Computed example of a mutant assay.
Amino acid sequence: MLWTLIVLGGFAALAVSILIAVTLGPADISPVNVRDVLLNHLGLTDVPVRVSKNAIVWEERLPRALVAAACGAGLGICGVIMQSLLRNPLADPFVLGISSGASTGAVIVGVLGVGGAALGLSGGAFLGSLVAFGLVLLLARMSGGSNDRVILAGVASTQLFSALTSFVIFAFADSDETRGVMFWLLGSLEGVRWDDVTLCAIVVLAGAAVCLYFAYVLDAFSFGDDVAASLGIAVAKVRMLLLVVTALITATLVSVAGAIGFVGLVLPHAARFLVGPRHSRLVPATALLGAVFMVWVDAISRVAFAPTPLPVGVGTALIGVPAFIVILSRRRSVR
């Protein structure tokens, strides 16, 4: 009963958060305007709404809020998977070097023009993420494939692609290109559209379904590979599958919204405090908490320095770094 109330409360909080977020911004949009626009597009009413307000709500703010929710949910789920598979409470989705690979891919397209209009920044970022993940898997397999080796391979990949990104910008980018790419790399939801909403929603929902299906496996991994193997789990195959799911979710979200850090690191710990360590509850709780968190971070980042929006990745870092320090302090006190 309590779990049901928590889930229903989470969905209600998410719906209210999105509604409020859509009203925030330089243009005056009331909750009544949002309601009328939504009901009109759903075909339930035909209330006259000014064209400008309809465009702001339906074409700009609502897709942005929904993508923010998808990013928070998806990165939170990836954090849960990484911390369980690697048995490291400080692991997050970007430990596999995916963010750095996405940055390099975006810079190659944006600065060098490789792929041009056929790819765009998002397409380049997605391909760069997959290349980085492939390199991590290759390095980890060459060195034995243990959890520690995966982390070390991720660190090496991160450093490599960060250096490549800096080199391309330093050697080939002019000031305008550098400014545009760097703003995107800091995390930005500017200009997202319904196509992005559809893509992010499908990937995150599919990833969440896979994680819930393997919830008992994630519980076993939390106690180590030997325990998981003793329960009849194909440790290597399942770990690879879940790592691939994590990579695809992260690569998709980074390709749409840029690098958004600390969500996958901090939110799983907050969810564990609320619902405990069982992954059948931890995964949906983290997804809901991450969605609500990101909607509010994006809304505040959008209006804090209006009319110039603060990159959402900066907002998550400002909140995530203090939380990260708290986690480190708790680990030290436990030891």
Results as ranks from 00 to 15, higher is better:
Val7Ser: 00
Gly9Thr: 01
Ala15Ser: 13
Ala15Cys: 12
Pro31Trp: 03
Val34Lys: 00
Leu38Ile: 04
Leu38Asn: 05
Leu39Ala: 04
Val47Met: 07
Lys53His: 06
Trp58Ala: 13
Trp58Ser: 10
Glu60Ala: 09
Glu60Gly: 11
Ala69Val: 12
Gly72Tyr: 00
Gly74Glu: 01
Leu85Ile: 14
Leu85Arg: 07
Leu86Val: 04
Arg87Phe: 01
Asn88Thr: 10
Gly101Ser: 08
Gly105Tyr: 07
Gly110Ile: 07
Leu112Ala: 06
Leu119Val: 13
Leu121Ser: 15
Gly124Cys: 01
Leu127Glu: 00
Gly128Thr: 09
Gly128Ile: 13
Phe133Arg: 06
Phe133Pro: 10
Gly134Thr: 14
Val136Gly: 12
Leu138Gln: 09
Ala140Asn: 07
Ser146Trp: 01
Val155Tyr: 02
Ser166Gln: 04
Phe172Cys: 02
Ser175His: 07
Arg179Phe: 04
Gly180Asn: 06
Met182Phe: 07
Phe183Glu: 07
Gly187His: 01
Gly191Met: 10
Arg193Tyr: 06
Trp194Cys: 05
Val197Gln: 06
Val197Ala: 06
Ala201Cys: 03
Ala201Ile: 11
Val204Gly: 04
Gly207Pro: 14
Ala208Asp: 12
Val210Gly: 12
Cys211Trp: 04
Ala220Phe: 04
Ala228Phe: 12
Gly232Ala: 14
Leu241His: 05
Leu242Ile: 15
Leu243Arg: 13
Leu243Lys: 08
Thr246Cys: 14
Ala247Phe: 07
Leu248Ala: 08
Thr250Gly: 05
Ala251Glu: 11
Ala257Trp: 03
Leu267Tyr: 11
Val275Ile: 15
Pro277Asn: 05
Arg278Cys: 14
Ser280Glu: 12
Arg281Gln: 13
Leu282His: 10
Ala291His: 09
Ala291Met: 09
Val295Leu: 01
Trp296Val: 03
Trp296Phe: 11
Val297Thr: 11
Asp298Phe: 14
Ala299Trp: 09
Val303Ser: 04
Phe305Ile: 15
Phe305Met: 15
Phe305Pro: 02
Pro307Cys: 10
Thr308Asp: 15
Val312Thr: 08
Thr316Met: 13
Pro322Glu: 08
Phe324His: 02
Leu328Thr: 08
Ser333Leu: 12
